[in-house]
């Protein structure tokens, strides 16, 4: 359905824009209808940049994003609006997603004015009620309130309800639960899971591996803009291949076991020359080959891809 092909994002930095920063490098993946795919990475890995490119909030420097075969970067005017009927995003901070001067349910009215001007306010109201009930909110408790009168979890579900009013096919969920409390975040996660069963595809962007594992079938691990590993979530967790993923899995604080005594993050190598593998300077198993060119993403086992020369040599 939604497909990314060799997508890159290059920012020009420096006083005259004469240096470049590759925020995302040659990322390719496809999301099937009704699939939840997690994009996992630490800060600076480019995970939010990918989400923003899909939402057309920033331009694409290279490659192509297509929805059902149509290149989204070409959309203008009405076509772009139609695109937003299908693809919507929800972001990390629910409090800054609202204008504090207006009541929070104004977001629903804006959707009506922009996308359904032919629907009268009286006909619109039952749809709002339906959407609110779909996200597990009691309309009586949450309508006609200002943003500061609602909790973070309620505001976040409001935004999901807003997206549902549009009958979307694809949701970009960028760290949507990292600002919520433990007792409410699981409700929002379960909500996403139930939306999935209605055929909605979700790109779940997170840094929290246990949340990603709870919700998604497939996961993509990003490091400094490169895809380092992609595969079934359970497989990546139980059997991580890339040295970075292995380090990540060893560092996750878990409730069922204590941290193992492993030497991590010791600066093993000199900084790479910028041409080779992005993980070179922290990698414990790096070799000379890793400085020459970025390792390609190869299928190490069925459905499990990894970008590391240690595996590409085995599979030929």
């Amino acid at each position: 359905m939604l497909k990314l092909e060799n997508v890159s994002k290059i920012y020009r930095i420096g006083a005259f824009g004469n240096r470049e920063l590759r925020a995302v490098s040659n990322v390719s993946f496809e999301v099937a209808p009704g699939e939840v795919i997690s994009l996992i990475g630490e800060s600076g890995s480019g995970k939010s940049t990918i989400g923003k490119m899909i939402l057309r909030l920033i331009s694409i420097s290279g490659g192509k994003i297509t929805l059902d075969g149509v290149d989204i970067s070409q959309h203008r005017g009405q076509a772009l609006k139609e695109y937003y009927r299908l693809v919507q995003g929800v972001f990390q901070d629910p409090f800054s997603s609202y204008n504090p001067i207006f009541k929070a349910d104004r977001v629903f009215e804006i959707v009506r004015q922009e996308f359904y001007p032919q629907v009268s306010a009286a006909d619109w109201y039952p749809r709002v009620i339906n959407a609110l009930e779909a996200v597990g909110l009691n309309p009586e408790h949450v309508l006609n309130k200002f943003p500061h009168q609602l909790s973070g979890g309620q505001l976040q579900r409001f935004l999901i309800a807003r997206a549902l009013l549009l009958d979307i096919k694809f949701l970009v969920a960028d760290e949507i639960i990292s600002m919520l409390d433990a007792s409410t975040r699981i409700d929002v996660l379960n909500l996403l899971a139930s939306l999935k069963s209605r055929g909605l595809s979700i790109l779940f962007i997170t840094h929290d591996l246990s949340l990603a594992h709870y919700i998604s079938e497939r996961a993509i691990i990003l490091y400094r803009g490169f895809m380092v590993e992609m595969g079934a979530t359970g497989r990546i967790f139980d059997h991580p291949l890339h040295p970075y993923t292995r380090m990540l899995m060893a560092s996750v604080p878990r409730l069922d076991q204590k941290w193992q005594e492993v030497e991590i993050d010791a600066v093993a190598n000199l900084p790479g020359n910028g041409r080779g593998c992005a993980y070179y300077d922290r990698c414990p198993v790096a070799s000379h080959q890793c400085t020459q060119s970025p390792p390609p993403l190869v299928e190490a086992e069925p459905g499990h891809f990894v970008a590391c020369f240690n595996y590409s040599s085995q599979s030929g």
């Binding site: 975040r185 996660l189 379960n190 919700i215 979530t233 967790f237 409730l255 069922d256």
Partner: peptide, 17 residues
């Protein structure tokens, strides 16, 4: 209510408070 690594919603649905 805390998701543990290795738990998916299909195996065990967690509930909030």
């Amino acid at each position: 209510s805390l998701p543990k690594v290795g738990v998916t919603y299909t195996q065990k649905k967690l509930t909030g408070i």
